[in-house]
Design a protein around this nucleic acid. Sequence first.
DNA 1: GCGCCCAATGATAGTTGCTCTCACTTGGCC
DNA 2: GGCCAAGTGAGAGCAACTATCATTGGGCGC
Lengths: 152, 152
Amino acid sequence: MGTETSPAWVDHVAAALERAGHRSGAARQAVVELLGEQDCCLTAQEIFDTLRDRDRAIGIASVYRVLELLSSLALVQRIDVNDSAARYEALHPSGHHHHHLVCDECGQVIAFEDRGLEEAIESLSEQLGCAVESHDVLLHGSCPNCTVPAAA
Amino acid sequence: MGTETSPAWVDHVAAALERAGHRSGAARQAVVELLGEQDCCLTAQEIFDTLRDRDRAIGIASVYRVLELLSSLALVQRIDVNDSAARYEALHPSGHHHHHLVCDECGQVIAFEDRGLEEAIESLSEQLGCAVESHDVLLHGSCPNCTVPAAA
DNA sequence: GCGCCCAATGATAGTTGCTCTCACTTGGCC
DNA sequence: GGCCAAGTGAGAGCAACTATCATTGGGCGC
């Protein structure tokens, strides 16, 4: 894990923020860089804790503020996995993204992608007569670890 | 609206609860009947308020308790629409169900169904090597009302 | 029908994820 | 360097949800 998402997205965000008339700031920068490193979604608390551990501590209010801003500019996607805390992840300008399987046993969130699914959703949005801007697919089940009882 | 989901599902729930060794109770009965009438999802608060308006008031704690029980028995599905309150709706034993479009303008939740989408998810779950028990697709965009600026 | 036992219920206090407020700091144009 | 708005952080506030616990009532044995 680590570099999949990194530099291009961080630059993209910087450009988009500047275009939208925002200044740079330490807290926002730290959150963006952290999100850029991730392969999958993080909760606000995880972002807060990780930055504190790295001696780049910022206020929890700033975490939420940055996430809301990025979300409103379609730079991150908010994902709700039914475990009370929302998660956020980088949203690529290319539209390339993935979806999530939530393990109902251990709570782990696993990312996956599937072309067929994307196509089904695309053709669906045309039929609906609504402007579909983003979509999120959430599967519930058991992850490989929990599926095999012996390995649990 | 009103009768699409109704009697069969309520009976199904009653049977499943008895099978699981639960007694009947007024609060639970009221929640199940209300859910059985719905075509789409309700929040816990909506359930609480509606029952109070019908002079079948029950404690808010009971609402949550019943929803959790039904959810754990796969009799209702919990849906998180990113607006802070979770929503719940009847889950049919036939597997027949629908998904949701959330209007980012007005917050309205619209139900839809699509065979192609279901098929894509089914074939996907086979590939994943995980036991997928349920799935939920959430589209974000604008509902017909909000899509046409003139009608807003 | 009567009584007993435990599941079901409801009021309320507590927890928690998140938002609001406001004083302070900082970036960036002059 | 000075100014001012944007950015930030601490902490209060809010709302959804959960835990607790005393009371109620369903349903079985009698």
